[in-house]
C-alpha cells in the first residue's frame, strides 16, 4: 500500500487537498449553485490541464489544438447520445475514442516534426476541427448550438461536481502511473534530448504517438463530460483562447508535475471569474490578464507552483536534519 502511495505521488498535502475538494460544496459560500458552476468549470480546466501537461510537460510537445480534441470528444459523445439514444454515461467513453484515433493520426504526421512546427500543426488541427463544427450545420447545428442530454436529471450541481472531481482524479491517477512506469522515463528523455534518447535505443516516434493518443483520449473524455453537463455545445468551445486557458493553468501549476494544473485551476479560474464580472464593461480584458500572467510565470517562475512546493519541502527537510 505504501509503495502504491509513493507510485502515485500521494503525500499528506495531496490528501488534504483531495479532502478539501470533497468537502468544499458543503461550506458557504461554495454551497450556492452559481458558485458550484464556477467550481465545476474550474475542475474541467484542471482535469484538462493534467492531460495537457502529460504531453507538454514530458515529451515537450505543446498541443495547441488541445481544445479541438476536447471538442471532438464532446461532439462525438453528444451526437451518439442524440442520434442513437445511448446513455451519456456510455457515450462519453465512446466519445473519447475519436480524439484518440485523431491523436494517433496527427501524432504519426506531426510528431515527425519538431518544436514550433508541431505546435503549428496541432494548432491547425484544432482550428480545422472548430471550422468543421461550425460548417457541418446538418450535424452539429453550427453556432446555433447543439442541445444534448445531461448526465443527471436533477437541477442540482452537486452530483456533477463529484463526477468531474472523480474524473480529474482518474485522469491524474492513470497519467501518474504511466509516468512512473518505464514509459515515463522514456517520455522525459525524448522531451529533453531526442538524439540521446535514440542512442539509448528508444524509437521516439512510438513513444510520442503513445503519449499523444493517451492525452487526446482523456481530453475527449473530459470533453464528453462538458457536453453532458452544460447540455449545449457551440463550436467556440474549441477556440484557441480556450486552449490558452488550459495552457496557462498547466504552466502556472508547473510543467511536468501533473498535479500542478489541478491545484492551480480552482483559485485561478475563480479569480478570473471575479475579474470578468468586475470588469464586465471591458470584455476581453481577462484574456490580456491571462497573457500577462503567463509571460510573468514563464519569465520569473518557469517551474510554477510545483517548483515552489518542491523548494518548501526541501527547506523543511534541511531544517529537520539541522535540528537532529
Amino acid at each position: 500500500m505504501k509503495k502504491f502511495q509513493d507510485r502515485i505521488g500521494l503525500s499528506m498535502p495531496g490528501l488534504l487537498f483531495g479532502v478539501f475538494l470533497l468537502l468544499l460544496p458543503w461550506f458557504p459560500p461554495f454551497n450556492k449553485e452559481y458558485i458550484l458552476r464556477w467550481l465545476i468549470a474550474a475542475l474541467i480546466v484542471g482535469a484538462s490541464a493534467i492531460a495537457f501537461d502529460f504531453s507538454g510537460g514530458f515529451i515537450a510537445v505543446i498541443n495547441f489544438g488541445f481544445m479541438g480534441f476536447f471538442g471532438l470528444g464532446a461532439y462525438t459523445s453528444a451526437l451518439l447520445a442524440i442520434r442513437f439514444h445511448l446513455s451519456p454515461w456510455l457515450t462519453i467513453f465512446i466519445g473519447a475514442l475519436s480524439p484518440a484515433i485523431l491523436g494517433l493520426l496527427s501524432g504519426l504526421v506531426s510528431l515527425r516534426l519538431r518544436g514550433m512546427m508541431i505546435l503549428c500543426f496541432t494548432w491547425f488541427v484544432g482550428l480545422a476541427l472548430m471550422g468543421l463544427a461550425t460548417k457541418l450545420v446538418f450535424l452539429t447545428r453550427g453556432s446555433l448550438g447543439l442541445p444534448c442530454p445531461t448526465l443527471y436529471k436533477t437541477a442540482s450541481n452537486v452530483p456533477y461536481y463529484y463526477t468531474i472531481l472523480g474524473m480529474m482524479f482518474v485522469t491524474y491517477l492513470v497519467m501518474k502511473l504511466v509516468i512512473q512506469s518505464h514509459y515515463g522515463l522514456a517520455f522525459r528523455a525524448i522531451g529533453q534530448n531526442m538524439e540521446a534518447a535514440r542512442t539509448s535505443g528508444i524509437n521516439p516516434l512510438k513513444f510520442r504517438v503513445v503519449n499523444f493518443i493517451l492525452a487526446c483520449a482523456f481530453a475527449g473524455w473530459i470533453g464528453g463530460f462538458y457536453a453532458h453537463y452544460y447540455g449545449v455545445l457551440t463550436p467556440d468551445l474549441m477556440s484557441t483562447a480556450k486552449t490558452t486557458e488550459v495552457l496557462v493553468i498547466a504552466y502556472i501549476g508547473g510543467r511536468g508535475s501533473l498535479w500542478g494544473g489541478a491545484v492551480a485551476a480552482v483559485p485561478f479560474v475563480f479569480a478570473m471569474e471575479v475579474i470578468r464580472s468586475v470588469l464586465s464593461d471591458m470584455p476581453g480584458l481577462n484574456l490580456i490578464i491571462y497573457g500577462l500572467f503567463l509571460i510573468f510565470v514563464m519569465l520569473y517562475y518557469p517551474g510554477g507552483l510545483a517548483e515552489g512546493y518542491r523548494k518548501i519541502v526541501a527547506k523543511l527537510r534541511v531544517k529537520e536534519i539541522a535540528q537532529h
Binding site: 518505464h182 522515463l185 522514456a186 522525459r188 528523455a189 529533453q192 534530448n193 538524439e195 540521446a196 534518447a197 535514440r198 542512442t199 539509448s200 535505443g201 528508444i202
Partner: peptide
C-alpha cells in the same frame, strides 16, 4: 543501439534535467 553499438558524445548523450541515476537507467533502457 539495440545491436550493441553505443555512441559516447557529450552533446548527444546526457539528459541534463535528469539525475545521474536516471541517466544511467536511460542507458539501460
Amino acid at each position: 543501439c539495440r545491436m550493441g553499438i553505443s555512441l559516447v558524445s557529450e552533446e548527444m548523450n546526457l539528459f541534463t534535467g535528469m539525475t545521474v541515476m536516471e541517466n544511467l537507467s536511460m542507458g539501460a533502457y
